[in-house]
């Protein structure tokens, strides 16, 4: 008998299971693993938003098609993941840049709602293309990390028992590597300086000779690459893969980005973790909230953030003096 369970905390509507330590640790781990994927999606959103002020609603679908490509190369043809994943990422980046150049840029100049409509159109097209090429039924998930039942670190050898899967740790390491590389690229390279200058003041960026259009393409390329990586990790994490893999994940990513204020990289990471934890802990805590309501929770998070603290959790007030 767990000590906690004997405490008179039995609140109506609250699950008893919540007081089981090993269960809670597991929920936190799951939340943080999904959260890492949401953080990657949020990073994609942020990278595009910072320079263009647009949200790419097709980001998730672009990731899905990248992940399905990995499936075709590695699961179907047996090519190792270390070849297929970088290849899919590289291809997504090229496609992302081309889409930005051909479909988004011409509409962007006119301003208004056009870009939103174009990304929604892309959402539908890519989703349908996935369904046509790979079928509407689930296929074998991609598993770049070991995914057998025994592939895990035992941390507490029970009771209470607690173990973390290798794949979960792999997801966290991937996120850390992506953030690290992104930081290096943005803070330590000329290209990154150009990107940040465009984000800070597009017109002045042009006036010092920074090719703004190419920076916007760079943003879309990076976002597309990260989106594909997120989709691969999500497929591994959930053990599922079909043409709708990321349809909901984009919303969690947007919620995470909203938490981070839409323009902050650390904000996106923390936002992803928060959304992941909320998604895994809230239904376990309150039995009247089913886990199928996670989409609704994402919606609530977005609305709450925008209403209460539109600048996000890190809330850096704009540093501009005139």
């Amino acid at each position: 008998m767990n000590l906690l369970q004997t405490l008179p905390w039995a609140v109506p509507g609250v699950n008893d299971a919540f007081f089981d330590l090993s269960y809670v640790l597991q929920l936190v781990t799951t939340g943080l693993a999904n959260g890492a994927v949401y953080a990657l999606m949020a990073l994609s959103v942020v990278i595009v938003y910072r320079t263009t002020g647009h949200m790419n609603f097709a980001q998730g679908e672009m990731g899905t098609i990248g992940c399905l490509l990995v499936f075709s190369i590695s699961v179907e043809r047996g090519v190792p993941y270390w070849i297929s994943i970088p290849a899919a990422i590289a291809l997504s980046m090229v496609v992302g840049a081309v889409l930005q150049r051909t479909l988004v840029q011409p509409v962007e100049r006119r301003g208004g709602m056009g870009v939103v409509l174009v990304t929604l159109g892309l959402f539908l097209i890519i989703n349908a293309v996935d369904a046509v090429i790979w079928g509407a039924d689930p296929v074998t998930p991609v598993t770049p990390f070991p995914s057998e039942a025994g592939d895990r670190f035992i941390i507490l050898d029970g009771p209470p028992q607690f173990a973390i899967r290798y794949s979960t740790i792999g997801i966290w390491i991937t996120l850390a590597v992506v953030v690290g590389l992104l930081w290096l690229l943005l803070q330590r390279t000329r290209l990154g300086l150009g990107y940040r200058a465009v984000a800070a003041n597009p017109e002045s960026a042009l006036l010092v000779g920074i090719p703004k259009d190419r920076m916007l393409m760079l943003g879309w390329a990076l976002a597309a690459g990260i989106g594909t990586l997120a989709a691969v990790l999500f497929s591994q994490k959930t053990g599922s893969l079909d043409f709708n893999l990321m349809a909901a994940v984009i919303l969690y990513g947007l919620a995470a980005a909203a938490l981070g204020g839409f323009d902050s990289i650390p904000g996106a990471v923390v936002g992803g973790a928060v959304v992941g934890l909320v998604e895994s802990l809230v239904p376990a805590f309150f039995s009247f909230i089913g886990s199928e309501l996670s989409l609704v929770m994402a919606l609530v998070v977005i609305v709450a953030v925008l209403l209460v603290r539109p600048q996000g959790i890190f809330g850096k007030a704009k540093v501009v003096r005139v």
Binding site: L193, A200, N201
Partner: peptide, 15 residues
């Protein structure tokens, strides 16, 4: 038209 979020040094580098 400076880059407000960039440091002074980065502004000059951008120049």
């Amino acid at each position: 038209g400076t880059f407000p979020e960039l440091s002074v040094e980065e502004n000059l580098d951008a120049g």
